[in-house]
């Protein structure tokens, strides 16, 4: 199966692991991630204002690209996913906004037809965690892993619809499929501080520390995330357990981590 793939700015740069391992692992699971040609940065955050049009065009173009190929659009980075999914929702539900956007669309009209999946949803809904489990060659036995969702994957739930926004299980189910033990802790859906580390680093530090402390108190030996900014904030603010992308762990479990590094 082939899907349109939106990597996003950071995945081509500071978060290459997120990109490379995603593509490799998907291949093992029978899905080809076809990178969208000439994709442009999503902008990092979705502007909820209804009169912001230009900032959402790059997302609409990516969505239109997938529609033209009759493929679902798959994202990995939480931020890209949030921006693209929220933009798609606005295109479906806010006619006035969609009309404005379509005036800029040299590529042709778009009205929210494309289905947007995060890589985690792709694993759950297209591949199935049982199928993932079958492909695991290096089960991560005995590892106590805490999934960190942050805010962007789950909220606002009326749009994102990924999982129960207050007690999600999708990453925990992946951790189980990889043979490790998920650690559930309440702060896994609280914000790390995001871009606020530019404006007030202390705020980001306080939030990140509380998350790490909560995960460790629950027995976590490692934290996985889908978001480069979450990873940055947690590490910069003194995480004393490893914080890595879930794709790196997936590649390891599927046995494609080494050949990726070569």
């Amino acid at each position: 199966m082939k899907v349109s793939y939106f990597p996003g700015c950071t995945l081509k740069n500071k978060a290459k692991e997120l990109d490379v391992y995603s593509v490799k692992s998907a291949e093992v699971l029978g899905i080809t991630l076809e990178e969208i040609e000439n994709w442009q940065c999503c902008g990092g955050v979705f502007t909820t204002a209804r009169d912001e049009v230009a900032t959402k065009l790059s997302s609409v173009r990516a969505l239109k690209y997938a529609l033209d190929r009759e493929q679902p659009l798959v994202t990995v980075c939480s931020a890209c996913h949030n921006v693209i999914k929220q933009t798609n929702y606005a295109m479906q539900n806010d006619k006035e906004f969609a009309d404005k956007v379509n005036r800029y669309m040299a590529e042709g009209e778009y009205n929210g037809e494309t289905e947007v999946y995060n890589y985690l949803e792709m694993l759950r809904d297209m591949v199935g965690f049982d199928a993932v489990k079958e492909k695991v060659v290096n089960p991560l036995k005995g590892k106590k892993i805490a999934a960190y969702y942050g805010c962007l994957l789950l909220r606002p739930n009326s749009v994102m619809r990924m999982d129960d926004p207050e007690n999600p299980t999708i990453m925990e189910d992946l951790i189980k499929a990889m043979g490790a033990e998920p650690v559930v802790y309440a702060k896994r859906n609280e914000c790390c501080g995001g871009y606020i580390s530019v404006e007030s680093p202390e705020s980001a530090k306080r939030n990140s520390n509380a998350i790490i402390a909560n995960a460790k108190a629950a027995g976590a030996e490692m934290i996985i995330t889908a978001c480069p900014l979450c990873k940055y904030n947690l590490i910069k603010n003194g995480a004393d357990i490893p914080v890595i992308y879930f794709t790196e762990l997936l590649a390891e479990a599927l046995g494609v981590k080494e050949d990726t590094n070569e």
Partner: peptide, 13 residues
């Protein structure tokens, strides 16, 4: 170690 995501997000906000 600053991810570009941080800069674009802050810039947009």
């Amino acid at each position: 170690d600053v991810p570009p995501q941080l800069l674009v997000s802050a810039f947009r906000k």
